[in-house]
């Protein structure tokens, strides 16, 4: 068994694709019409056969209170690994991405938290092994 796909609940699927694809740099892995919504997944170009992220609509009534409460306290929904967190934050800030937490040294890892524009916070992490 392997980890094939994980879900992120998003306010709007197209806006999510614009951000995860156009800004963060993931590539579309699946885009299948499913009635009102799409089965829409993205994957890292560094690992095209790796775990996909499903950009899920917030259809269920429990989702909005859940994602809003996490965001209010600054809690990221998932973690993306990067090679150079300072360079990545600089690049993304230049593209207009909003950070709720600038790069912070947390011992073996340096982390930052950004707003994905569709209702979630995402953590970037660079393992420094210190």
């Amino acid at each position: 068994m392997k980890l094939q796909a994980v879900s992120i609940f998003v306010d709007d699927q197209q806006k999510a694709l614009d951000f995860y694809g156009g800004v963060l740099g993931f590539q579309t892995a699946a885009d299948v019409p499913m009635g009102e919504h799409r089965w829409l997944t993205v994957v890292s170009p560094e690992d095209p056969t790796g775990t996909q992220i499903s950009l899920e609509p917030k259809d269920h009534p429990a989702v909005v209170p859940f994602t809003d409460a996490l965001a209010a306290d600054g809690i990221p929904f998932c973690v993306f690994g990067v090679e150079d967190i300072h360079a990545e934050c600089e690049r993304l800030t230049g593209l207009g991405v909003v950070f709720t937490q600038q790069p912070t040294d947390m011992g073996p890892v340096t982390v930052a938290v950004l707003d994905d524009t569709v209702g979630n916070l995402v953590q970037l992490a660079q393992y420094t092994g210190a």
Binding site: D73, G74, Q101, M106
Partner: peptide, 23 residues
């Protein structure tokens, strides 16, 4: 660092001050 979320404060307390208090 001023202007922190609860998440950042909790992470810093855990990593730098060994504070294991709940959120």
């Amino acid at each position: 660092r001023d202007e922190q979320t609860l998440f950042e404060l909790c992470s810093r307390l855990a990593m730098r001050h060994a504070v294991t208090s709940s959120r």
